[in-house]
């Protein structure tokens, strides 16, 4: 069955075109989206606004990101412009290891992150300093103390069709997929705000910060509560259950039937 590690290690081997273009359009439109709407989370917090962080971020950016995204975030053929994507986007993309990209593929893949938390924040500070965009989420929305019932309902309506009701992920078109949700509350929050890659944007007018908090609360509840029925078989639903019934259930019973009908020695 599937598991997160497998998904993390998957090698992108699909259509070689498009990643660049996809990312470019994605990040551009996120930035553009942000420019269009007022609101959003509190613009960059004080600690990531310090000049020291920004300088540190600039150094890291020039060394690791500028080859694709340009020295001044203007973008290039191999990477989109990052002007106006905001700190949230940088924290999500770098903090989940999606950036820097390992290789071209239908979509950027989650993998072990390449930068420390401190470095990620510095990068975010630098990118945010060059254009306004969604900032890092306010910690009070990440505490998992919201209304899980509201969260579960919103999750089913807005998220489950791609990510599966249990957050186990699912397929999208042309080899893309919605990943299993095993990210930190901050990254989940950021993903909703920025709409990374093909994920739609869920701005604060669509799902208010409290709604987002409720969704995170529900996901945290699921993560922390044991499955009442036992091992969940990847939360993949009837397909996994059917295979299990055939191979384990019927398999075991056939093995017993062979023993039962074999001649005793």
């Amino acid at each position: 069955m599937s598991n997160a590690t497998k998904r993390k290690n998957r090698a992108g081997r699909r259509s070689p075109l498009a990643t660049v273009a996809l990312l470019a359009i994605g990040l551009l439109s996120t930035g553009g989206a942000y420019a269009l709407i007022s609101g959003g989370t509190a613009e960059a917090q004080s600690d990531i606004n310090s000049q020291q962080m920004i300088d540190e971020g600039e150094k890291l950016f020039s060394a690791n990101c500028a080859s694709c995204h340009g020295l001044n975030l203007e973008g290039s053929e191999s990477g989109p412009s990052l002007i106006g994507v905001g700190a949230a986007s940088v924290d999500f993309q770098v903090g989940t290891g999606r950036m820097p990209l390992a290789q071209q593929g239908p979509q950027g893949e989650e993998k072990p992150e390449q930068f420390t938390d401190e470095q990620t924040k510095a990068l975010a500070a630098y990118v945010a300093s060059l254009g306004p965009g969604p900032g890092l989420p306010d910690p009070r929305y990440l505490d998992g103390e919201g209304d899980a019932a509201n969260g579960s309902e919103l999750f089913r309506i807005n998220c489950a069709m791609c990510h599966n009701v249990a957050g186990a992920g699912g397929a999208l078109t042309e080899g893309k997929y919605a990943p299993a949700i095993d990210a930190t509350p901050a990254h989940i929050y950021e993903a909703m705000v920025i709409g990374p890659q093909n994920m739609p944007v869920f701005n604060d007018a669509n799902l208010s910060p409290e709604d987002k908090r409720d969704i995170i609360t529900y996901l945290e509840f699921n993560r922390e509560s044991p499955s009442p029925g036992g091992y969940v078989l990847g939360s993949l639903g009837p397909v996994a259950e059917g295979l299990f019934a055939w191979f384990f259930g019927l398999g075991a019973i056939v093995a017993i039937a062979v023993w039962l009908t074999a001649k005793s020695n």
Partner: peptide
């Protein structure tokens, strides 16, 4: 409101 539906958004 129309203004709340930003680029890339999907509302149910």
């Amino acid at each position: 409101r129309a203004s709340e539906v930003t680029l890339g958004s999907a509302f149910h």
